[in-house]
Design a protein around this nucleic acid. Sequence first.
DNA 1: ACGCAAGATGTTAGCGTTAACTAGAGCGCC
DNA 2: GGCGCTCTAGTTAACGCTAACATCTTGCGT
Lengths: 342, 342
Amino acid sequence: MVDVSVAKSRRLPVMGDVARLAGVSHMTVSRVLNEPESVRPETRERVLLAIKQLGYRRNSAARSLVTRRSQTLGVVCFDTTLYGPASMLNGIVHATEEAGYAVSVASLRRPTAAAATQAVQRLVHQSVEGLVLIAPQAAEAMAFVRALPTDIPVVAVENALPSVTSVSVDQVLGARMVVDHLLSLGHETVHHVRGPSDWSEANGRVDGWVAALEEHGRLVPRELVGDWSAKSGYVAGQKLARDPRATAVFAANDSMALGVLRALLDAGVRVPEDVSVVGFDDIPEGAFVTPPLTTVSQPFREVGRRSIEILLGEVEGGEERGASSVIPPELVIRASTSIRRP
Amino acid sequence: MVDVSVAKSRRLPVMGDVARLAGVSHMTVSRVLNEPESVRPETRERVLLAIKQLGYRRNSAARSLVTRRSQTLGVVCFDTTLYGPASMLNGIVHATEEAGYAVSVASLRRPTAAAATQAVQRLVHQSVEGLVLIAPQAAEAMAFVRALPTDIPVVAVENALPSVTSVSVDQVLGARMVVDHLLSLGHETVHHVRGPSDWSEANGRVDGWVAALEEHGRLVPRELVGDWSAKSGYVAGQKLARDPRATAVFAANDSMALGVLRALLDAGVRVPEDVSVVGFDDIPEGAFVTPPLTTVSQPFREVGRRSIEILLGEVEGGEERGASSVIPPELVIRASTSIRRP
DNA sequence: ACGCAAGATGTTAGCGTTAACTAGAGCGCC
DNA sequence: GGCGCTCTAGTTAACGCTAACATCTTGCGT
């Protein structure tokens, strides 16, 4: 289909070739492609036919050279193997494609400032028209801000960078919903296994957790720290299993929640009879583990969609700076939480 | 850092500007950037300084126009939310970046031939220099083959397309290892919850399962069909729970295995005491579910690395057609399988 | 029949870079 | 001491496209 070209000459056909075959000037070919309405239907058909016969495709480099537009957005991400970032990337890629832009991805191997700078540079070098950052570590935040070019729009997802428009899920609210849910089940307080301290999402969840407990006048237990992995959740769970006051545990993501679950079960603690456990993210497997996990669902697709919407508003409409936007998450109650039975 | 430019004129600096500031011709600037050795150190320093002062960056469109190289590889993928594809994408992005190429991603919303064609076209339009297909459905296979341009190298991962170089994990071998393991534990036969019939990976696993059973002269039970989701695994698990002859279950991926596990437990079947369950993929959570899941680990990074290696061999070295390559998976034995106790 | 607007198409000149050739300087060699 | 060779830097011409302006048809009013 693509290669119906006469294939005689080695070089790909250019506008001039199409023009010659159609008996028009190369400019008419360009017009057929860019503003078909301005060309007489009869001529247009002839040109279109010639294009098909030669298998002609516009040279995008030449096009962007003269239009000064690359029709490409850049995405900087960290570990897209994690469910959250992967979903986000997915949402962003879809939204970008729908808008007719290409997506160029730069992935940080490690969460260092140098890597962040390098990734941004690489994308800027590719002359992307806008930049999406899905790199939720605060560690690179300043590196990002320094590396960011001033001449192209940027949107950060899940990471409130100073002076950068951001789209994020309301982590604080999500954590509050978890705490409210657990307290309403009669638990005295809620223990927390937090994510790495350089992740803004982890911090938001801690903030919400603390705020909600304090509002209810409850004691805020010392938090445990994980690294998002189920393994780190397991380690935390082992400690929690030894603490009789820990009857409700809020893990900062589902993977860690699974680790906690596992550790508790291994220690002979029943979930949810003895201890309630809640996660965060709503991974697809969450409903099918034992026991099915109560968690907080984040509208990743929506975040992707909205961030691209804002970004393209700035890229195309030339809007000054899109307003940051926060999207509420949703509590999904399943079987890993229950009324406290002392 | 990036914007130390004089910022007086609205337009970005071009080679000519750098040249004027450094007191040389634009060609010398070009040489400093492309073949520094050929410029006298003294001159080179002057040019480098001017570049820094102006914050000059080469225009990549102009560059690719004249060199006819986009320095970009295209990746076509389907659902990058699934662990397997996400890991693969990750591996590919890393390998591509290391090689100094940009990565343009096209994602299929739905696994249809039309979407496949469109995605390939979109990337080709962006003048990518090579194409990686991570779209494991056979459904689009023919669409891909038709849509593929003949003038740029293509590598398929996990999908043996006719006349396309491929890199994949040995699915058949993986399945055999699972069956061998289960039979060695004393199970009479192994039941299988397969993936969608249009995924080549699913088919490979079925083939290996059948082959291994037949080699051992065992009865091949009727297979159950899932869609990779834990939910579909759950449905399959419910059926299996009713079948007293099903003492060993091989689910085609970990998510479905979790669903099976859940269904069995819900039905009062103990795992692994009554029934052994094995998954495939080795998702990070697998070690922390109840019971920890025996599964097959796939070297996704390695697949990504090797596919890019082959692709770039063709792109740069002009090698005719890279040889397809198959990488062995690894059996990870955990606690969801045990000796059959009748 | 003539002028004139509107529509369709053509002509020309870049966009910013690299390829390919040209020119000048310095230097060794017979 | 002049010839040619190497090393460095400059000049010119693409690359394939679109913007902007120029030109040629039409058709219509008077």
